[in-house]
Simulated assay, not measured.
Amino acid sequence: MDIVQIVILSLVQGISEFLPISSSAHLVLVPKLFGWQDQGLAFDVAVHVGTLVAILFYFKDRIFKLLSDFLSSIRQRKMVGESMLVYAVGFATIPAGIFGLACGDLIEQYARSGFVIATTTIIFGIMLYLADKSPGLKSEANITIKIALIIGVAQALALIPGVSRSGITITAALFLGFNRITSANFSFLMSIPIILLAGGLETIKLIKSNTTYEWTDLGLAFVLSAVSAYICVKLFMGLISRASMVPFVVYRLMLGVFLFYVFI
């Protein structure tokens, strides 16, 4: 990979990972437009670790408080503070884990076509618009295990390229009556175990491959994806605190149409 490819793909991953616009759609489209070869597993691991570090840093104070409440709840055998949110994130991860193990190979084989990605980009963009038309008033205090499982099932659908993990989980939360900030916060917290699991599986494959790597290139990819992801999350949270999801809906529709033009 040359330096231009590393920079562009790292920024694409960092910017699109947490926005409701589908990182998979962009990572398929960009190499296609530039005629690049697949970036490889080592690069995927580097940018995933970068985005994980970004979200951990963004929520560092919140995560410390959540883990403290969680450990206290275990010791006291009752809910303490915001410990329910930790349990909710854990239960929300289960459907994606099951769906990934059961259908991961099928998705990889049949669902990565340009047609599928273009279609899901448009369909789930429209769903985001419908969900965002009248956001509810529910906050994190209203998140239960049942609600977490429902949003977790939605998250499992994001294994299909073009759906967007953050997009579908925010959409599900909005449909369930949560406000935009809570929907986004819970979506981002849900991303932590998912990225950990995905990154862990990719790392295992990487270790088994016994391939040599350009560590400088991987380091650059890690830094660029981490910095761009952090900035993007910060700007996104500021935006939705005073505006709707419409700009992202419009972007998804335009992207879907362009994907049809490029791939069909």
Rank of each mutant, 00 (worst) to 15 (best):
M79S: 14
M79P: 01
V80L: 07
G81V: 02
G81A: 04
S83R: 03
S83F: 08
L85V: 13
V86Q: 08
Y87F: 15
A88S: 14
A88H: 04
V89H: 05
F91P: 13
P95D: 06
P95T: 07
A96M: 12
A96S: 13
I98P: 02
F99Y: 13
G100V: 09
L101I: 12
C103R: 07
G104V: 08
L106R: 08
L106G: 11
L106N: 08
E108Q: 14
Q109T: 11
Y110F: 13
A111I: 08
R112Q: 07
R112Y: 10
G114F: 08
F115P: 01
F115N: 06
I117Y: 03
A118W: 02
I123Y: 09
G125E: 06
M127V: 12
L130R: 14
L130F: 15
D132Y: 00
K133D: 02
K133H: 11
S134N: 15
G136F: 06
G136D: 04
L137W: 05
K138T: 04
A141V: 09
A141E: 11
I143V: 15
T144G: 12
T144M: 08
I145E: 02
K146A: 14
A148K: 01
A148E: 01
A148C: 11
I150L: 14
I151T: 14
G152V: 05
G152W: 06
G152Q: 03
V153M: 11
A154E: 03
Q155R: 05
A156S: 13
L157N: 10
L157E: 13
A158W: 07
I160L: 10
I160R: 00
G162R: 03
G162Q: 03
G162H: 07
S164A: 12
R165I: 07
R165P: 04
S166Q: 06
S166C: 08
G167S: 10
G167V: 04
I168Y: 02
I168A: 01
I168S: 00
I170P: 03
T171P: 05
A173G: 13
L174M: 09
G177Y: 02
F178A: 05
N179K: 06
N179Q: 10
I181P: 00
I181N: 12
A184E: 05
N185E: 13
S187T: 12
S187C: 12
F188L: 13
F188D: 01
L189G: 01
M190S: 03
M190N: 04
S191N: 12
S191K: 11
P193L: 09
I195H: 08
L197M: 15
A198E: 05
E202S: 15
E202H: 13
E202M: 15
K205G: 07
L206A: 10
L206T: 10
L206C: 10
S209C: 05
T211R: 13
Y213W: 14
W215V: 07
W215M: 11
W215E: 04
T216V: 11
D217E: 11
L218T: 04
L218C: 02
G219A: 02
L220F: 12
F222A: 06
V223K: 00
L224K: 00
